[in-house]
């Protein structure tokens, strides 16, 4: 078992309005307006994922898919329950977080790589590959505040996918850049996900899920509605969706 989730429950304590200053807090407390509302996002979720499995997570918006991914990635701590993960995780939740606009592309490769948990030796050996894949050429020495958004995404994607992680967490398959690069990046993703890596993957694109996944977790109303064989669940899901 690579990922073992046991009875994960996640509750957010929602304040009427996000109180972020002392003054607001004092006023709200004094006037008795500070009410908390418990918002249940995940309710008693348990599942196991084996090594090499590609598992898709489907469900409506707000079903708790992204929260679940964040809990597995270790960013969020569940209110109760436990997640055990063996192996290094590369979360592809949002590309390019941690880029510093003042630094050059090259410096950002090292910074972003370090944040994603890559080692120095690894980055040095893969530097050329990242540069080539991103198609940035001589722009790599420029501060990235001068980059276009497409260039930024290409760089971020190249850094994030250079690694061969043991566990990959993907929130929607990323296709960035112009058409040529989109094709290339999609191919790269498929290659990553097909290469014996354990993948946990959220998507609204059912045909993509059907094509890639061994198993599917269907989240609805903060619980697991169905878990199991891809084809079966997808057809059920489609049926409900069509109505």
């Amino acid at each position: 078992m690579v990922i073992k989730a046991e009875h994960i429950t996640m509750k957010f304590r929602m304040v009427n309005d996000k109180v972020i200053s002392l003054k607001e807090y004092v006023i709200a407390t004094l006037s008795g307006k500070l009410k908390y509302e418990e918002l249940l996002v995940l309710d008693d979720i348990s599942f196991d994922i084996d090594k090499g499995e590609v598992v898709g997570i489907i469900g409506k918006n707000g079903a708790g898919k992204s929260t679940l991914l964040k809990i597995i990635a270790g960013v969020l701590k569940p209110t109760s329950g436990k997640v055990t993960v063996e192996g290094n995780i590369v979360p592809m939740l949002e590309l390019g977080s941690g880029f510093d606009p003042e630094l050059s592309g090259k410096e950002n490769i090292y910074l972003n790589g370090a944040i994603l948990g890559y080692s120095k030796e690894f980055l040095e050996s893969k530097y050329d590959e990242i540069l080539e894949f991103s198609e940035l050429g001589q722009f790599i020495e420029m501060p990235i505040r001068n980059y276009s958004s497409g260039m930024l995404m290409r760089l971020a994607f190249s850094i994030a996918t250079v690694v061969q992680p043991e566990i990959l967490i993907v929130d929607e398959i990323l296709a960035v850049g112009d058409e040529g690069f989109q094709k290339k990046s999609r191919a790269r993703m498929m290659e990553l996900m097909g290469g014996g890596t354990t993948v946990l993957f959220v998507s609204h694109n059912l045909s993509q899920i059907e094509e890639m996944c061994d198993r599917v977790i269907w989240l609805e109303d903060h619980e697991i509605k169905q878990i199991g064989d891809t084809k079966k669940i997808c057809s059920l899901y489609k049926k409900i969706w069509m109505q």
Binding site: V75, P91, L93, E94, G98
Partner: peptide, 9 residues
């Protein structure tokens, strides 16, 4: 660093 904290452990 909030953008990092919510995305990477």
């Amino acid at each position: 660093n909030s953008s990092l904290i919510t995305k990477v452990y």
